[in-house]
Nucleic acid binder design. Structure first.
Lengths: 237, 237
DNA sequence: CGGAACTTTTTTGTCGACACTTTTTCAATT
DNA sequence: AATTGAAAAAGTGTCGACAAAAAAGTTCCG
């Protein structure tokens, strides 16, 4: 139903897309074994192209592999998620800086339009976390493309995209945060519109720092419930 | 002679190492086709592990691949090299920042010792560009490890290492630059010793900016000789 | 002599098979 | 009953093979 038009796309490429989706959907949970024969059967392909997809995801730090032991979905401890946010702060800060001097008026208009649409919709139904996630991802990749730097773009939109998607699951978006993120996005667009590279980088870095600090807070609040199956300290319900 | 101890290392891993070396040695020049059968014969292995090595290098932007057309060594135009330096500035700036608060006294002593050794040797034989390159790479990876951030470390020491190695070929190290780089390294270490995160990031970014500007100058000076076989404008012997 | 169409050769993408390792199963022993 | 050990099952890493596509070489025509 999906793999009818094999036009210049290889089995390995579609395997990468499907495997990525399986992991992001949470069907293969963090720490779960990635069995080559099982997935090959499931995707209706042989092991060769599946292995290529696995190697690509390993290179992107989504899978961890030990020789002869196979691949597993990476387990993102809170410490690792924080480290990933640090990398994002560095790369996306530079993305904003580079975009500031290269973005077109038309692109600024598109960003403003999207923000206005988001504002209108949120005044109807409130800041839903689901919608915000989708739009947040679009916002960041859109600005990446404005940097006109293929390596920055590839980093954010390909290499780290899946890993960031996994991180989002750790980040319980509270409505308050969704609203603050919206405000911060506005500041970033303002800096871009001013072609103020310093301010754009700073605004982007503060935005990602704020997300990271929200994560740290939510982890401390939960009291390290990620390790064991049961959570400690909270006994209600 | 080399592949006797197969202890927990796979053929694919050693193929990655060998292929990387072949590219960095310039045996496979930028734009050259990476033929699977030929390299497999040469390495005495089958195509399967070689393909894995190719896919890994493709993921690292060292090889470019088009479906059904095979892989080629990336052609680093001056514009691309500049873009890579921008990525380095972002990532290594953050590396310096994170290292500033985490580096140990022992590690600072090691960095100082290495600088002193380099100074002593350069007073004997001058700032050789060959030696400087080796030491420069060590300097940057050493500080990366001081960041205690596995993703920053992986990025600089694995993902981008080969690409940066390729960039170095574009950067004709003049002795003057080698000396300036040495001075800049000293400033970075001073900032780390002070545990001054802001200054460490700034010093690192300026250091990489200076390298980039040196590259831009040398490209303009050469007048775009990278495209064609002959250089335009300069007609002396 | 140059260029287009056809044929041959090479190469890529994919598959199935096999050896060796790891994991699991299961039975015997303390 | 629990633990240890051997045997069976499953999985990974590697190889050779094949179909389809691309590249190279050849022939024919203008």
């Amino acid at each position: 139903m999906l793999d009818e038009l094999d036009d210049s796309t290889t089995v390995a490429d579609s395997a990468l897309a499907r495997l990525t989706q399986v992991i992001l959907d949470g069907e293969l949970k963090p720490g779960a074994k990635v069995s080559e024969p099982e997935l090959a059967r499931r995707f209706g392909i042989s092991r060769a192209p599946l292995r290529e997809a696995i190697r690509r995801l390993e290179e992107r730090s989504v899978l961890t592999r030990a020789p002869r032991l196979g691949a597993r979905v990476v387990v993102l401890s809170p410490a690792k998620v924080e480290q990933i946010f640090v990398v994002r702060e560095a790369v996306e800060g530079m993305i904003a800086r580079e975009a500031a001097t290269r973005i077109t008026d038309s692109e600024i208009a598109q960003l403003r339009e999207n923000l206005a649409r988001q504002k209108a919709r949120s005044e109807e139904i409130g800041f839903s976390t689901f919608l915000t996630r989708e739009l947040d991802s679009d916002f960041h990749t859109f600005i990446a493309r404005c940097s006109r730097n293929e390596f920055l773009i590839k980093f954010l939109c390909e290499d780290y995209a899946t890993l960031i998607g996994l991180c989002r699951k750790h980040l319980r978006q509270v409505p308050e945060r969704a609203y603050r993120a919206f405000v911060e996005h506005g500041r970033i667009v303002d800096a871009l519109a001013d072609r103020d590279a310093d301010m754009a980088e700073l605004a982007m870095r503060r935005h990602i720092q704020a997300s990271r600090q929200m994560l740290v807070a939510s982890v401390q609040e939960a009291g390290g419930e990620s390790g064991r199956g049961r959570r400690r300290g909270s006994k209600r319900v």
